[in-house]
């Protein structure tokens, strides 16, 4: 099993997978939140033109792709903030122009073999050079550190842009930052995942994590775990199965999604069976007049001889002692009213 570590290219590919598996979902969650899931895809298209420029001028393709993608990211944010009916079309022109120019220019370059093009589009485990790896490491550390430090701001602006503006947060700069983080992630991922599939690793682990979590914080953690499983699993599988690594990574991410969907369906069925308290408009709280009793991690309120605990938009019926829900539920009249 560990024989794959004997190959230098596999060590590079695995380290690259580790980096993108951790970084892509952390940036992607904000794209999902802002409903911009396909922006990463568009930036991948544009980055191909950057790769071509690098190949034609014999400079480092990763660096030329980085410059191109970041410039495109800035242009996208400017177009979006100006709005208007043509901004959507302007993006389409840029994305298709980018990939068309990339394919043509790579064809013209000396290294422009079909195999080389395929590896840029769909990823390859043999593509990551040691130079790439140092660049990726520096970029990934920057992306992860920025998205962790600025997570509350990115979250706030994506959650409610109008409120963020009203409370004086730097909305334009935060949106620009997200766009640039996306561009950098695209470039870091292009060797292993490929420019056409990059967006998938930013989005699918988040789609899976959303099924299993209640909070933004836990969704982010779960998405990173899924991203790591998919990226590392995809690279290892592609070594043995001799498949393009990017496509393999995406398929594994989709399998994870299916498992998560099944788990959440089972969880849903379990939730539906629990014991709800009788409906009342009264909200329990410290001064509500009902006796509060600590129960595990929450408070139960003694309500006409029942113990009520807040859950979702209603109250649950809790039993004293062990934290088991009463089966069957019950109906009763409120003797004293809520207050």
């Amino acid at each position: 099993m560990l024989e794959l570590l004997d190959y230098a290219f596999m060590r590079n590919a695995l380290i690259a997978a580790l980096l993108i598996g951790a970084a892509a979902p952390q940036v992607g969650i904000f794209l999902v939140q802002r409903r911009l899931s396909l922006i990463g895809d568009g930036l991948g298209h544009v980055a191909l033109a950057g790769v071509a420029i690098g190949l034609l001028t014999s400079s480092e393709p990763v660096l030329t792709a980085l410059v191109t993608a970041v410039l495109a990211a800035v242009a996208i944010e400017v177009a979006r903030s100006r709005g208007g009916p043509s901004s959507d079309l302007a993006l389409a022109l840029m994305f298709y122009g980018g990939i068309a120019a990339g394919v043509v220019l790579i064809g013209l370059s000396p290294q422009g073999t079909p195999a080389n093009l395929t590896s840029y589009l769909f990823g390859s485990i043999t593509a990551t050079t040691t130079t790439d790896l140092y660049i990726f490491l520096a970029l990934t550390v920057t992306v992860v550190a920025t998205s962790i430090l600025l997570r509350p701001w990115l979250f706030a602006v994506a959650q409610d842009e109008e409120y963020a503006r009203a409370s004086g947060l730097p909305v334009v700069r935060i949106n620009l930052l997200l766009s640039i983080l996306t561009a950098v992630t695209v470039v870091v991922s292009m060797r292993v995942v490929g420019l056409l599939l990059i967006s998938a690793l930013m989005i699918i682990p988040n789609a899976s994590a959303q099924l299993l979590s209640r909070s933004f914080a836990s969704a982010t953690r779960i998405a990173v775990a899924f991203g790591l499983v998919s990226a590392l699993g995809g690279v290892v599988t592609s070594f043995y199965a001799e498949t393009p690594s990017g496509a393999t990574i995406v398929l594994i991410a989709l399998v994870v999604f299916c498992v998560a969907a099944a788990a959440s369906a089972i969880q849903h069925r379990r939730d539906a069976a629990h014991a709800r308290a009788e409906r009342h408009d009264h909200e329990h709280g410290p001064d509500c007049g009902h006796t509060a009793i600590a129960h595990g991690d929450h408070m139960d309120y003694l309500h006409d001889g029942h113990r009520h605990a807040a859950h979702a938009d209603h109250y649950d019926e809790h039993a004293a002692g062990g934290h088991t829900h009463e089966a069957g539920g019950h109906t009763h009249e409120h003797a004293g009213g809520a207050r």
């Binding site: 509350p152 979250f155 959650q159 988040n206």
Partner: peptide, 11 residues
């Protein structure tokens, strides 16, 4: 995306 009540209020 999912968020808890406390996460929204923290904004």
């Amino acid at each position: 995306v999912r968020a808890t009540v406390a996460e929204i209020v923290a904004i």
